[in-house]
Every structure is written in structure tokens, then in C-alpha cells.
């Protein structure tokens, strides 16, 4: 057991470059597999949290745009959503990576006259930023569709009541539509978040290379499966980790769901119903 403790010290933070550099090559123990794959999970959680957080706000903008009567707002939203929902995430990763590789390595200098700064484009070819960017766009597109549906199903009586009180414009949105929309969208959005978390497993399998063998959970699982020719241990370990995080996501989002529904009668409350998780 003490042996396993040293393994945790060596490999616990291996995926972010802290600890022992060299991965175990021979006599791979179960402990090493569990610890290293768990260490890779840090990346999945990082991608998941950041993409969901920023994607949420962008999705909201897209949904409002899609709901707008004016074509100049509606069409860009629609095309963005179609582009990212209509193509496989896998191809998006490849394409965007190649696109970022083509960007000049030294960075782009933006000159606004009064202010000029150089953008460091080479970070975009790294998974932590480039992969995140794709995930962000992808989740924004899928969530936007969910939010749009929720905006459309806000009860018209609520809107009429608001108008009767003279609440219009942005005020109407933030005070009336937004709370109802969020409440209606939340169960689907929970599934979206779970789904996005599962999609993080794709990043290191696509164009984005792992730097110094610091990859995500699946990257290490694949490493062990290649090394030991035994897929029956590492992949179930990944699966177990993902199920664990999925349960955590469900409980956090369930907590938020109760908060959003606190003003309603018990029968009227929306329930989170787990839908099947599918690939993109």
C-alpha cells in the first residue's frame, strides 16, 4: 500500500507536468493505472468547466440572436449553430487544428492606431487553448439550440402580464424571460453539460498533440492498453472515472435545478431527466 502512496506522489499530477517525468513502461501495476488515468482526468475537468462556463454566455447570445426578428441577427446565429451542430466534433477538431497551424508562428500584431499588441497565436495549436476553443464553440451551438427552444416555450401569459405592467425591452428579457427560460432549459442543459464532459475525451485523439505525454484520462488509458495489450483494465477505469464525474455533475446541476424551481408547486417543477448521451 505504501508503494501505491509513492505512485500517487509521483504520478498524481503527472498530466499537468508535475512529478515523475517518465511514464511506467514495464510491470505496470493497477495502482499506477488508476493514479495516472485519474491524473489525466484533471484535463477533462478543466476542459469541461471552462468550456461550459464560457459557452453558456455565448450560447445565450446566439439564442437571443436566433430569436430576433431581424435577419442580420438571426442569420449569423443560425449559420453558426448549423456549422457546429451539422458536422462531427471530431472533424471540427482536425480542421481547426490545421487552421491554427497555418497561422503565423510568431504571432499577429494588431495595430489599432492608438494601441497595438501582438497576439500569441502559437498557443492556439496547443490543446489547452485550441481544443478548448473548439469545445467552447461546439457547446455554445448545442446549448444555443436548447436555450432557443426554451425562449420559445416561455408561457405567453407571463409575457402578456409583463407588457401589461409596462415592462419592455431588456428589462422584460432579464426579469421575465430569462428566469423562465433558464428553468425550462435546465434539464436539457444538464444533459448538454454531461455530454460536453464526455466530448472532452476526444481532444487528444484528434489533431491536438499531447505535450510531454501530458494527456487526458483517455490518453493514458490508451497508453496503458497499448503497453499491456490488455484493454480490459484501463478502459473500465476511465469509464468508472467518467461515471463518477457524471454523477457529480448531475448532483450540482440538480441543486441548481431545485433553486430555479423553488417558487413553483411541487407538481409544476421541472425534473432533470437524464437523456441518453450521444456522440457528436
Amino acid at each position: 500500500m505504501s508503494n501505491c502512496w509513492t505512485t500517487i506522489q509521483d504520478y498524481g499530477l503527472r498530466s499537468i507536468g508535475i512529478g515523475e517525468r517518465i511514464l511506467p513502461k514495464t510491470d505496470i501495476t493497477i495502482c499506477e493505472q488508476v493514479v495516472l488515468i485519474g491524473s489525466g482526468l484533471i484535463w477533462n475537468i478543466y476542459f469541461g468547466i471552462i468550456a461550459v462556463f464560457f459557452g453558456f454566455w455565448f450560447a445565450l447570445m446566439l439564442a437571443i440572436g436566433k430569436n430576433n426578428k431581424l435577419a442580420i441577427f438571426r442569420n449569423p446565429s443560425n449559420s453558426f449553430i448549423f456549422l457546429f451542430r451539422g458536422s462531427p466534433l471530431f472533424i471540427q477538431f482536425f480542421f481547426v487544428y490545421e487552421l491554427f497551424v497555418l497561422l503565423p508562428k510568431i504571432g499577429v500584431t494588431l495595430d489599432f492606431g492608438f494601441l497595438s499588441f501582438s497576439l500569441q497565436t502559437h498557443w492556439l495549436t496547443k490543446a489547452w487553448l485550441g481544443g478548448l476553443f473548439v469545445l467552447f464553440c461546439n457547446t455554445a451551438a448545442y446549448s444555443a439550440e436548447i436555450f432557443y427552444g426554451a425562449i420559445r416555450s416561455v408561457p405567453s401569459t407571463e409575457l402578456e402580464a409583463a407588457e401589461a405592467f409596462g415592462i419592455t425591452g431588456w428589462h422584460k428579457f432579464w426579469r421575465i424571460i430569462w428566469p423562465s427560460m433558464l428553468r425550462l432549459a435546465w434539464p436539457s442543459y444538464t444533459n448538454e453539460a454531461i455530454f460536453l464532459f464526455h466530448a472532452t475525451a476526444l481532444i487528444f485523439f484528434t489533431g491536438f498533440p499531447a505535450w510531454r505525454q501530458s494527456g487526458d484520462a483517455l490518453y493514458y488509458a490508451n497508453y496503458f492498453s497499448d503497453r499491456t495489450f490488455n484493454p480490459f483494465l484501463p478502459y473500465p477505469i476511465v469509464a468508472a472515472y467518467f461515471i463518477l464525474v457524471t454523477l457529480i455533475i448531475i448532483s450540482i446541476f440538480g441543486f441548481a435545478n431545485r433553486y430555479l424551481n423553488r417558487h413553483l408547486d411541487v407538481e409544476q417543477r421541472t425534473q432533470i431527466k437524464l437523456s441518453i448521451n450521444l456522440l457528436r
Binding site: A201, P231, V238, F242, I243
Partner: peptide, 20 residues
Amino acid sequence: MVRGIPDVVFFLFVPLALDQ
């Protein structure tokens, strides 16, 4: 089974396991 597990894991695992 497939609800909680990323499908990529399945796609990597099933062919290998079947092959063996």
C-alpha cells in the same frame, strides 16, 4: 451502460475486446 460512459471509450474498447 452507454449512458454514463463516453462512446469513444466504447469504440476503442469493443473492437479490441472482440478481436481478442
